[in-house]
Design a protein around this nucleic acid. Structure first.
Lengths: 332, 332
DNA sequence: ATGAAAGCGCTAACAC
DNA sequence: GTGTTAGCGCTTTCAT
């Protein structure tokens, strides 16, 4: 059986409250006794029981982080930076995967509710209504979504989409396509609006193809439509979709970037490994993880009185090898 | 403030213990009162507080899962299958990343100790001594490691390594290299022993190159040595290393598989996306996740009396495009 | 600076 | 079948 605070108290000849203080408010206890207590604790291998502590204080010093799919390479950098940042603030973060299932997502949040002080919802699949309801139970911060009255960290994908369209335009492309993501995705909506507007401003046609699964498979499946669309420049929902699309295109004898240019979004590792190396809109995922933790901790600290904050992080275009001028030189 | 068991008791005119029973042992309470309690609970939005429950029962219904690097594509399938499998058994799994740091790993296990009923150590960086010590605090199951007195799930990488060597031999390669992983890695040791033995049996030379970081970068850095070694067939510690190696080789004008054949281990997604598509030793990661959860739950249930179990999962060779006969046809 | 005591939300004997 | 009572291990007033 593990040592409890009481064992330490007995061993060091003080009362439990003194032991408690040496761990949670060391400055309140006489250095001499403190050392005695610490020695006894060390001796017995005592470690404060965080569960018991949580029960009295109401704080667990844990955060939850929920993602739809941990296998999506977009998330790991965010998770890692969130964990590292939280650790520096003496918080642990527990990650859970919903398997893209919004029911699981909801259940997870509710179960987590009492075991963590707040949860980070990354690219949630849940609707805004549900999220608002859940926020009554526990401080929530969303990443890549805008929910009324809730802190959020957004990545300016609209700006990224504009940059992508401009890059394609500058290369001489005159017929563009957007391969969208899942229908509920905030990011997908933002991209669509921004890209469409930018294309319209340039008097260029942008064909919308979707919705698609946010995976390689989704891109693969969209290849036929892309080819039929006649577009020579395409912006994909994310890098995985772009990679799948390039593969699908190449299966059909269409060369990238020779015949069609493809731009992804996210800047994940597989995109850098891909041949051709992917031109992409880089998302500041590590920064997002840190910022999200900051906002969440802020919300946790403020309790009911929390003022929702909005952080919008910049995106940028990384030009690599999957984009080039269109075959004909740009003029039809 | 969230409703407690006491609120429900008041609202439904019964005592707290009855409320407790309706949730933890429903069959012990009269259907009529049970319904009354349930209705009141529903009404108040009551949900049992798992932390409080854990304090009395000593069980949290949570499992911990520790990985060295969540960004390593090897882990996500394992994590996902473990989470799904655990959920079916009414357990949640919390994932934590140690950032390849064994100090963080140890601290994490200790912190987790009281908040979960057991932890899964996947490809730990900690030494066996440390792991054995930690096992006194909490049920532990290791994946990809053999620790005395502890349940483990192993993947038969030795067999995989032999298959890989045989494949290379069959293609006509007569000088082989093994690009190893980190020095503490159990997997790396197994591979090395098996590959060396198999090569020796065939009267073939196997040069050992390493240790290397288990990453693309590690493979990239090993490219120069591989070239110098004169080997025409190489087995890499894992797919990421293989991918990096191929890249490094190609930077040096060495073609894969034209000049050198490369085999990876793991069968991760980026390997399938790579050009050339990677020939690799496939690891049964999803099965490993499920099996590990089973063994852990078994250990949790058994308490001190736990009999350590050993599960060895089969590996297989997936031949794709990164292997071919050596340039000269095989004879020197 | 330290001790005493109450209690966080729940479960688990033990009565009745 | 349900009520009573004692804690689980810790923090936190309130005294001293």
């Amino acid at each position: 059986m593990a040592a409890t605070i009481r064992d330490v108290a007995n061993a060091s000849g003080v009362h439990v409250s003194t032991v408690s203080r040496t761990f949670s408010a060391p400055h309140l206890v006489n250095p001499a006794t403190r050392n005695r207590v610490l020695a006894a604790a060390e001796d017995l291998g005592y470690r404060p029981n965080r569960v018991a502590r949580a029960l009295t204080t109401g704080r667990t010093n844990n955060l939850g982080l929920i993602v739809a799919d941990i296998a999506n390479p977009f998330f790991p950098p965010l998770i890692k930076s969130a964990q590292a940042h939280a650790r520096e603030r003496d918080y642990h973060v527990f990650v859970a995967d919903t398997d893209e299932d919004h029911l699981v997502e909801e259940e997870l949040i509710q179960t987590l509710a009492k075991q963590v002080d707040g949860v980070l919802l990354c690219s949630p699949r849940l609707g805004n209504r549900a999220i608002e309801r859940l926020a009554a139970d526990i401080p929530l911060v969303v990443v890549n979504r805008r929910v009324k009255g809730m802190s959020a960290v957004l990545m300016d994908v609209a700006h990224g989409a504009r940059l992508a369209v401009e890059h394609l335009l500058a290369l001489g492309h005159r017929r563009l396509a957007l391969v969208t993501g899942p229908s509920g995705s905030w990011t997908s909506g933002e991209m669509r609006a921004a890209a469409a507007q930018r294309a319209k401003d340039a008097g260029i046609e942008l064909v919308i193809l979707g919705p698609n699964a946010p995976t390689e498979r989704g891109g693969l499946a969209a290849a036929a439509q892309v080819r039929r669309s006649g577009a020579t420049g395409v912006l994909a929902y994310n890098d995985m979709v772009a990679i799948g699309l390039i593969e699908g295109l190449s299966e059909r004898g269409v060369s990238v970037p020779g015949d069609i240019s493809v731009i992804g979004v996210d800047d994940i590792v597989p995109g850098r490994l891909n041949r051709p190396k992917l031109t992409t809109v880089a998302m500041p995922t590590s920064a997002a993880g840190r910022t999200a933790v900051d906002l969440l901790l802020q919300a946790v600290g403020a309790g009911e009185a929390a003022t929702p904050a909005l952080a919008t992080l910049e995106t940028s275009l990384v030009v690599r090898e999957s984009t080039a001028p269109p075959p004909s030189g740009g003029r039809t």
